[in-house]
Design a protein around this nucleic acid. Structure first.
Length: 109
DNA sequence: GGGTTGACCAATG
DNA sequence: TCATTGGCCAACC
């Protein structure tokens, strides 16, 4: 499986994003690592095209930040979902980081 | 076939 | 914490 169809790749990425529970967030690199295909940039490209149909705000960069264009929109979601935010306006991946691990017992609280 | 761009990541100062 | 640099792979012209 070294040459997956672009369609399957999108389905994989979007499926994983939908698996991220509210109040949590993951990174592009994490998604790329789970799917095992392409890289973080591939995931970003998918989100830019079909990310509008999923909780794209739960997918952030490695430092917990998001594009300024969507930063404002995302912040509104975090406030409703209770996602931990930093004073810099970034997501606190230390507490809300979602790495698709079976041991997701630890929460933001 | 070559140059540029992109919802990125890690290392360095 | 922020800015810079190098690497990565696919899409576009």
């Amino acid at each position: 499986m070294t040459a997956p169809d672009p369609e399957a790749y999108v389905e994989q990425v979007l499926s994983l994003v939908e698996q991220v529970p509210p109040g949590r967030a993951t990174t592009y690199g994490a998604l790329a690592a789970v799917v095992g295909w392409g890289g973080p940039r591939r995931v970003g490209a998918v989100m830019a095209q079909w990310g509008g149909g999923v909780a794209w705000w739960r997918v952030v960069r490695a430092d917990g930040s998001l594009p300024p264009s969507h930063g404002l929109e995302a912040r509104a979601r975090y406030r409703e979902e209770g996602t931990a935010l930093l004073a810099s306006g970034r997501v606190d991946l230390r507490r809300c980081g979602w790495w698709f691990d079976p041991d997701d017992a630890d929460g933001p609280g």
